[in-house]
Design a protein around this nucleic acid. Structure first.
Lengths: 158, 158
DNA sequence: TTGATATTGATTCTGATTCTCAAAATACAC
DNA sequence: GTGTATTTTGAGAATCAGAATCAATATCAA
């Protein structure tokens, strides 16, 4: 079973990490990585449904969690807690690092990037003797369309 | 039992909000607010222990959660999820808004503020048609003392 | 191919937060 | 002040995401 042979650099990265740590490259891990690389961000539950319905019906949810955490350790993923309950895993390779602009009234989430902010972040970190590996920036507010926001009437009426 | 009469502006704010929404100012809410205003940030559990041991042994944990969420709605508090599991409630009035610099190796958390970054954030928000109410910036990395970090040996040895 | 070791999946467990509901407290009209 | 409608409380149950357990299975290196 020589699989697709399209072992790109992420799979290579995974392999290297696994080997270095005496871990094993399993079909599950490969399938999860493959699916994860296709998305921008996803929850464990979504990824579970995605994979178990399309590829491996017998895949266990625990394996999803374990592997997503693995990907976060490698640096391919990053955990992010939105509001309450939802934890999403960002694919940090999918595009350049980006930050989020989140509307409190509707569910709109805009991704943006600002090299200027990143530069200042590095500066602040250096000033405090830190070397940065990553960061998380979330701006909350309301968007210009707030009159059309889904939750506006509900929250205004409270 | 005319309590202290030191109803400062935060209690007044709480009162105004409660009245406006046909809610009631209870002794529990007042006690929780009072305790919350003394700290910089705290978890629900910590606040529960603090209050139930020192002031009101019969205080229910659910009331702590309910009231903390109330304070967040008013804008006195802000929820923040660290790593996994821990959710802390920031007292946003306690000091000027600050961001966090978090060491991945030890548990060190440094608070900092950067008006320059804030300014750029406003700029980005405006560019996308957003009006900001608050934000959250967390920088992850390792501190200069990483050789002394508590978890360093553990994680290096993995 | 073998054997030591790591991983999986099913399940259970955990711990944080929310929900439930009868009893108690509060606000407001009088 | 008093009465009463309404909200809140506390105790415990329910919920839920995520982690832990463990026997069965897959992987890797020799």
């Amino acid at each position: 079973m020589h699989k697709g042979s399209s072992l790109n650099k992420e799979v290579a990265l995974l392999k290297r990490y696994l080997t270095k740590n005496h871990l094993k490259l399993t079909q599950q891990r490969e399938a999860i990585l493959e699916a994860f690389l296709k998305v921008d961000h996803i929850t464990a539950e979504e990824l579970y449904r995605e994979i178990s319905k399309k590829k491996r019906p017998q895949m266990g949810l625990a394996t999803i969690y374990r592997t997503l955490n693995l990907l976060c350790e490698i640096g391919i993923g990053q955990q992010r807690h939105f509001d309450d309950n939802r934890t999403i895993y960002d694919n940090v390779l999918h595009k350049k690092h980006h930050d989020h602009l989140i509307c409190n009234k509707c569910e709109k989430i805009i991704e943006f990037e600002s090299p200027a902010i990143e530069r200042l972040q590095e500066e602040m970190a250096a000033r405090h003797g830190f070397t940065l590996s990553n960061h998380r920036l979330e701006l909350f507010g309301h968007c210009i369309d707030w009159k059309n926001c889904r939750d506006w009437q509900k929250s205004a009426g409270r």
